[in-house]
Design a protein around this nucleic acid. Structure first.
Lengths: 210, 210
DNA sequence: CCGTGTGAAGCTGTTCACAGCT
DNA sequence: AGCTGTGAACAGCTTCACACGG
C-alpha cells in the first residue's frame, strides 16, 4: 500500500518509465483503460511483470477491468518524481553535450536543461542551436545553487570525468548521468548512472552472427 | 576451453568491454601484467566476477601472477570481434545522429560510420562537422550492400523507428542500436539494443533523495 | 605463497498459476 | 467472466571460498 521506495530494483524503475511512455501513447489514441495483457501484447512486454512491477507501489488496477490509463499515468509520474520540474546541467559542450542540451526529452516531462558548461574559450559565451547558454565550468557551483540543480550530466573526456563528478556533487547535485567512457566511483547517498555508447556498440558486435 | 559464445549473458559481454577499456588504460601506463584483484580495486569492479567472466572463454591468466595485459587485451578484442573493422550507418541526421556520426568511439576500435541518412531535403547532400555525408534514406539498401554494413543506428522520431528497423534488416544489417524512444519488436537471428536517454534520466529521478 | 579457475552457495529478478475481487 | 495481485517455483547472475597450478 504505502509507497516505500526501498528494495525496488533499477530494472523495475526502468520499466515504470517504459510503462509511462506506453500509457501516454494509448492516451493520445483516446483510450480510457488497458489491461496488463494488452499492454504486454502491444509493446512487447510481459504481463505478469507489469502487474508485479506496479504492485510494488500499490493496487492501481481494477480486477476484471484493468488499469485506468489517466490514473495510472499520474501515479507513475508521481512515483518517478516527474511532477515537479527538475533543473539539469550538462558539463561538456562537445557535439554530444550540445545535442543533449537541445534534446526535447531533456527539456520536457519534468526536466529542463538550465546550462551547459565547458572550459574551451571558443565555446564559452556561445549558445547551442536551440539557445542554451554555454558557461565556463568554474561557474558550476554558482549556477547549481541558483537553479537548485538536481541532476548533472557528464559529457566530457574520460580523464576529466571523475573530477567533474566530484565538482557536481560538491555543488549539491544529487544525481549524475555520465556519458564519459570512464569508470567513476559512485559516492554514497547519491545516484550515478552511466550510459556508455561505445560499450553498447561493442556488446552488439559480440552478438552479431558473422 | 573452446570459445563457445552460447549461454554468455549480456552482462558478461558488457563487462568484457569494460575490461578492455581498463586494460588499454593500464597498457598506456606501461604496465605488463595485472591481477583480477588489482583491476577490481582500481576500476571499482569485483575480482571474482572478472575471473569468472574471463573463464567463460578460456584460461587467460597465470596462477600466482595474474594476466598479461597485452595478451588479454588481444583476446578480448577477438572475442568482441573488434579485430575486423565493421561498417556502421546512422539513420536520422538530427543533433544526436550527427553527434554520433562524428563520435570518436564510433570511428575507431573496430567501427567506422560510413554514412548518415535522413529524408529532410534541407539535410540531404550536406555533411557533418567532421565530414560524414548525409544521404537520402531511400539509399539505405544500396549503401548497406556496397559497404557490407554490419550495424545500423536508429536516431529518428519514435513513429518511424519500427519502419527504419525493418528497412535496415531487409538491407542485410545484422545488429541495430536504437536511440528512439519507442518499443521495437526484435526479429529473431538479429540483435537489437536500445539506449533510451529519457528513460535513463527518469530512472535517475526516481532514486534521487529529495 | 600467490592468484587463477571453479564448484557451490546465495541472492535477485522473472515467470507461473491461481485465489479473490469487481 | 475477466483481470488483478501475489505466493511459490524457477532461472540467472553474483559472490564466496578453496583446491590447484605456477
Amino acid at each position: 500500500m504505502s509507497a516505500k521506495t526501498a528494495n525496488i530494483s533499477e530494472a523495475t524503475v526502468t520499466r515504470l518509465s517504459i510503462y509511462l511512455r506506453c500509457l501516454q501513447t494509448l492516451e493520445k489514441e483516446g483510450r480510457q483503460t488497458v489491461s496488463s495483457q494488452e499492454l504486454a501484447r502491444q509493446f512487447h512486454l510481459n504481463s505478469a511483470q507489469i502487474r508485479k512491477d506496479l504492485a510494488y507501489f500499490g493496487a492501481f488496477g481494477t480486477r476484471g477491468v484493468g488499469y485506468c490509463i489517466a490514473n495510472l499515468k499520474d501515479q507513475i509520474i508521481k512515483l518517478l518524481k516527474l511532477n515537479k520540474e527538475k533543473a539539469v546541467v550538462i558539463v561538456g559542450a562537445g557535439h554530444l553535450g550540445q545535442a543533449l542540451a537541445d534534446f526535447q526529452g531533456f527539456n520536457s516531462g519534468g526536466f529542463r536543461v538550465v546550462a551547459l558548461f565547458d572550459i574551451d574559450p571558443a565555446k564559452v559565451g556561445k549558445k547551442t542551436a536551440k539557445g542554451k547558454s554555454i558557461l565556463h565550468a568554474k561557474r558550476i557551483p554558482e549556477i547549481a545553487k541558483k537553479h537548485n540543480v538536481a541532476i548533472g550530466i557528464i559529457a566530457v573526456r574520460p580523464q576529466s570525468a571523475q573530477a567533474i563528478y566530484d565538482t557536481l556533487l560538491k555543488a549539491g547535485v544529487k544525481g549524475v548521468l555520465t556519458f564519459a567512457p570512464a569508470q567513476i566511483k559512485e559516492k554514497p547517498l547519491t545516484k550515478l548512472r552511466a550510459v556508455d555508447l561505445k560499450i553498447n556498440l561493442e556488446t552488439l558486435s559480440f552478438f552479431l552472427r558473422s
